[in-house]
Amino acid sequence: MQITLGPLLFFWPKKEVVTFYEKVAESSIDRVYLGEVVCSKRRELKLDDWLNIAKMLQAKGKEVVLSTLTLIEAESELSQVSKVCENGEFAVEANDMAAVHYLTKAGIPFITGPSVNLYSAEALQVLHRTGLKRWVLPVELSFDHLKLIMSRLKELGINDLETEVFSYGYLPLAYSARCFTARTHELSKDSCEFSCIKSSAGIPLATQEGDALFTINGIQTLSGSCHNILDQWQVMQDAGVKAMRLSGHSEDILKTAEEFVLAMGSGSSGKYVMGCNGYWLGEAGINQR
């Protein structure tokens, strides 16, 4: 089982990002997804900066994938996605059909992130024909759905498609034209003062009764609790899942990764602070069992 680190969903100062990935380079994580996937206004790091981090990680033996913007509205954003797809050196994770289009056109094998809507083996088959080599299961699908998809893939004769599962972290739930962080600070999106940088792990949103519901992260809405299905690694492995994705909201993710590696090494399911796991069980995602 490979351990991967998903793209950083939050807006951190450049120095912190660089320091973070220097530590990632020394960790047990096998594959690292890099790049800004939430908001094009977050420009602490330019594409060249991400490429420098990518090269540093690669030199340390990590597999590196560049991940593209999810919600594309402006032409400038589209050309940025095109540049990432044409980087010529690193594999690319498409988070929108725009990236799928560029990569397919160029004949470059690609990966799809959790926001590309692939809910059946038949849908995977369509993209497999155009160069899909790995996909991340949409976060709202259950283990039962995954098993059905995997067995149907076999029936369709598709044996070389790798499956990755989002296994730890705040779940990406929605994307909007509106920036909720700016709204919280009573600013408009066009003059947001890059306020996302003030909340390194997003802003909690709770019901009036104090139940944690969502996490506001700019134009993205994340789950209010941290999703955690790391203890499921054995059933995933048996089902043919090749990689488990961790998504970080602080440097603590590296500690979680090391604990997880130890647990897998000793054949145990591991001891974690439980988060939500409802989606994996075929229930409301917020549920925790």
Binding site: I72, E73, E75, E77, L78, V81, M97, A98, Y102, N117
Partner: peptide, 8 residues
């Protein structure tokens, strides 16, 4: 299908 751009 969330197609918001020319490439998609």
């Amino acid at each position: 299908a969330s197609a918001t751009n020319q490439a998609s």
